[in-house]
Design a protein around this nucleic acid. Sequence first.
DNA 1: CTAGAACCTGAAGTTAGGTTTAGGTCAATA
DNA 2: TATTGACCTAAACCTAACTTCAGGTTCTAG
Lengths: 146, 146
Amino acid sequence: MSYSIGEVANITGITISTLRYYDREGMFPNMERSNGGIRMFSDTEIETLHIIECLKNSGLSIKDIKQFLNWCQEGDSSLQKRRDMFYERLEVVDKQMKELQNTMNTIKFKCWYYDTALAAGTEETPKNMPEEEIPEEIRKYSYKCD
Amino acid sequence: MSYSIGEVANITGITISTLRYYDREGMFPNMERSNGGIRMFSDTEIETLHIIECLKNSGLSIKDIKQFLNWCQEGDSSLQKRRDMFYERLEVVDKQMKELQNTMNTIKFKCWYYDTALAAGTEETPKNMPEEEIPEEIRKYSYKCD
DNA sequence: CTAGAACCTGAAGTTAGGTTTAGGTCAATA
DNA sequence: TATTGACCTAAACCTAACTTCAGGTTCTAG
């Protein structure tokens, strides 16, 4: 089964120009072309795109992702490097999740803060509220400096 | 209590040049200067930096964060807009967390995949493994197209 | 009072990750 | 066979978010 660039764009939600850019960067070393020079994406390339998205989300640059894809081309001799890379990503994403949880906590605090302000008609109300009146779940995220 | 730009850089981990850039962009509308023109950050600015980080993590651009900080300057008349913005961020960050969880699942699958490959000496082993031999927790992330 | 560390400004430079443009070619359909 | 929609390339362009540079000022410790 092979797909045109437009089909892949539809399947994955990645734009055509980005797909061509990835190809230019060498992300699809095994992709075939029709006689007329038209790209023929296969399931291999779709899976590569899945991995590219995953590694991008984990904070890797396009350059580093290309490095990983090069290792894949080298075969079993690069297994250790590839394993280590994924374990490193594991740690990084774990940190990202914790940071995002902090972000979420601050946002939840702010949602309470503005709900309270709107109910009272003024920001002064939540701003001056004594700690023990702040809902327990968000109390510790009030982050007051002064 | 007031802090020099260098102290703030130490406290927050944000570089001096970034702090100056934020100031140039108007993120600290109430910050004072010494007679000689030197920036004097207060706890208000430290808290603003905390919010800037939070909103950046939630996917907002510097321009949009500036917009929010402008609303803060307008006082109680902008409470509704500010509330709505935080509820929107809530949704966005919720999506981000789900996406990051997917990323994590793919990475965990790959960790298993490469551990298995290394133990066997070849990638063929995990690649051809029948589904029921893949550990249950990660089985559904194997993402095979072919 | 002087040395040097830390601060200041405006303007130019950098980088990643694409996107757009211009000028074509390919392929399925009427 | 002619159209037309999808595809192709190389090269230029774009944007966000900083960072660096050059040249000058302020502040603090000896």
